[in-house]
Nucleic acid binder design. Structure first.
Length: 640
DNA sequence: GTAGGGTTAG
């Protein structure tokens, strides 16, 4: 008997000699053949290797319970090689595992990220249960194969297997990944039929799916219908608003839920910080920062990335850089957030230097966003030649990131900015992508600054063809004609616009003073202090006119007389917000105004005169970038 | 046994 055991033991040792398993200790067998209880005892002592050894020794005797126990342990420890050995042991010994064990194998392989092996076991299953289906679906979903996950879900339904809450929660994620809103809605009706709409996991996934497809009302409906809320469902709805750019709604909901006792974690704060970045609500942002510091949350790098972004979008690059410098670990997003910050502030030199540092440190691989930030940073920061060099590097394939359409768009911007309008036009015609409206828009802007009507007209024609409803395009063309003194053409543009255009998004500007956001719309008659604000605008106008300001009437395309046009211009929301800032802050203090769209030529000029005449530093953050105006000179170089 | 929310760009 003992010899038999020794023989088997040495055989087993040979079998396992290729693994990392070390045999410092001989397993103690209480009986022969050993039973699953022995295995469990070994496993509970953490002796997975010994358990495997015993399994090999006893051969066929192990069967169901032993395999189950060991595989479970392999899953818990993510012990890939050991689990694979268990699986091959089954095959070698011609053991045919029941559904339960096959499911265990599928789960083992999916958890160990061996999708191919998982799929093989799954495909060979004679009958599949809901757990196996869900495990394989979520494995595909989590690894980014959303369409395949949806395919499998359809197969599951056809096979007659009934999805449970786990399945629904998982498959909804695939709908987001595969951009299939119609499937999401069909699945929603299945969920309702299964009475799982109020399930906390299913509900959060469902509301997140709606939010990701821009159906925020549906998302909110699902959220309000949840019988209980937790940190995930609350975060999902807040981030839903934030991701849609509904920043005020996101902030408002966050504050309400906080009052109602919501718990927050790092994901919640990261989502709220996105909204605060959009609003440039730096006082609120600092409060969150304090919370974060006090609570010592895990996954700090994600939060730090959000904080870098928040501070830079609130105009405080110094804070951003301080956080960046103090990070113990940086991801590519950390670098990107910092580079984007410099880029939006027109700090070309800093962009190039930081990118150099990124390469020197050689810890993080730059990605497509990195190059987008670098190219647009070079463009906005007066480093056009460096920008073109980086782009050439991308084209040559030296840095491993191939240029995409957005990078080409940056190059159009760079060429246009440096006055190479013809070159930019040729570049667009020859690039391997269909030009976008944004590209033509950027080139039309270049034509305006560099007074190139010939190309401007061609570009405008294509642009208006592509986006006949976008009033901004007509304004650019009108500006171009006006700058050449072609008033007849300005009138024609207006008529053309009257036929087709609608104002897509109303202009809105805001300013944060003493932790309060004050928002203004064009010709705002609703603000409680409107009289004061309008009076201040008039006062500013008188003073800056004396200093040489003349309104740029080509920014107004309404069919009205000149006096009316000037009135409309004075009602632009950024002027109101700027005036309000001047009223409510002491002389000499910098003022920062945010705008949801691109700033108009006249308002830009207005702000420059105000900064000069009143000796104020004025910062304007528009849709694309910051304008830092000191003494009448803007950091954008009058090109944006 | 299987499941939900997050940070950079556009």
């Amino acid at each position: 008997m003992l010899r038999k055991l020794n023989y088997r033991f040495s055989q087993a040792k040979r079998k396992f000699s290729s693994t990392t398993v070390s045999f410092t200790r001989q397993p103690t067998l209480s009986s022969f053949p050993p039973n699953p209880t022995d295995l469990k005892a070994l496993l509970s002592n953490g002796q997975l290797e010994d358990a495997l050894l015993e399994m090999a020794i006893q051969g066929l005797e192990i069967k169901f319970e032993g395999y189950d126990t060991i595989l479970n342990e392999c899953v818990n420890r993510r012990a890939i090689r050991e689990g694979q050995r268990v699986h091959s042991h089954m095959i070698k010994t011609h053991y045919h595992p029941p559904v339960y064990l096959r499911t265990r194998l599928v789960v083992f392989y999916t958890k160990c990220e061996c999708l191919g092996d998982a799929r093989k076991v799954f495909d060979e299953m004679p009958d599949r249960n809901v757990v196996a289906w869900t495990a394989i679906i979520s494995a595909y979903s989590q690894r980014g194969y959303a369409s395949e996950a949806l395919n499998l879900f359809r197969q599951m339904l056809r096979s007659g297997s009934e999805p449970n809450a786990f399945t629904f929660a998982s498959v909804l994620t695939s709908c987001k990944g595969a951009l299939r809103v119609e499937y999401g809605m069909q699945i929603h009706s299945l969920i309702v039929k299964s009475m799982l709409e109020s399930h906390i996991y299913v509900g959060s996934s469902l509301l997140d799916m709606y939010a990701k497809f821009g159906k925020i009302h549906e998302a909110r409906g699902v959220f309000e219908g949840l019988p209980e809320r937790d940190v995930v469902s609350c975060t999902a709805i807040i981030s839903g608003y934030a991701q849609m750019g509904l920043d005020e709604e996101a902030l408002e909901l966050f504050r309400r839920l906080q009052r109602e006792g919501m718990t927050c974690n790092y994901v919640t704060y990261a989502s709220v910080l996105t909204a605060l970045s959009g609003l440039a609500a730096v006082d609120h942002g600092k409060q969150i920062h304090n919370h974060v510091l006090r609570s010592e949350l895990p996954f700090y790098v994600v939060l730090q990335n959000s904080l870098i972004d928040m501070y830079s979008k609130c105009g405080n690059l110094t804070y951003s850089r301080r956080i960046f410098d103090n990070m113990s670990e940086r991801t590519v997003m950390s670098w990107n957030a910092m580079l984007v910050g410099y880029s939006k502030h027109g700090k070309g030199r800093e962009v190039v230097e930081l990118f150099k540092l990124l390469r020197e440190q050689n810890k993080v691989k730059p990605d497509t966003v990195t190059f987008l930030a670098v190219l647009s940073g070079c463009s906005h920061g007066g480093m056009e030649d460096r920008g073109l060099e980086f782009f050439d590097e991308m084209v040559s394939g030296k840095n491993g990131v191939k240029p995409e359409i957005e990078h080409y768009s940056c190059v159009v911007d760079i060429l246009g900015r440096s006055g190479k309008v013809e070159e930019a036009f040729e570049f667009i015609k020859q690039m391997p992508f269909e030009p976008t409206a944004a590209m033509w828009g950027s080139l039309l802007g270049a034509c305006r600054v560099h007074l190139n009507v010939d190309i401007g007209e061609l570009v405008a024609e294509r642009l208006i063809e592509m986006e006949p409803e976008n009033s901004g395009n007509y304004v650019l063309l009108s500006n171009l004609y006006a700058s050449m003194g072609r008033w007849e053409d300005v009138r024609n543009v207006r008529e053309l616009m009257n036929e087709k255009a609608v104002i897509k998004e109303p202009g809105r500007s805001w300013i944060e003073l003493n932790q309060t956001l004050h928002t203004f719309h064009a010709s705002d008659r609703t603000h409680p202090r409107k009289e004061e604000v309008f009076a201040k605008v008039k006062e500013l106008l008188v003073k800056i006119k004396q200093a040489g300001y003349t309104p740029d009437l080509s920014c107004v395309l309404h069919d009205v007389d000149e006096e009316q046009k000037e009135k409309i211009l004075l009602g632009h929301s950024e002027k109101l917000a700027l005036a309000f800032g001047l009223i409510d802050t002491p002389p000499g203090k910098p003022v920062q105004v945010m705008k949801n769209l691109r700033i108009c030529v006249d308002c830009h000029n207005f702000a420059k005169f105000v900064s000069k005449v009143y000796g104020r530093e004025v910062s304007l953050r528009d849709k694309n970038r910051f304008h830092h105006i000191i003494g009448g000179i803007c950091s954008c170089g009058d090109y944006w």
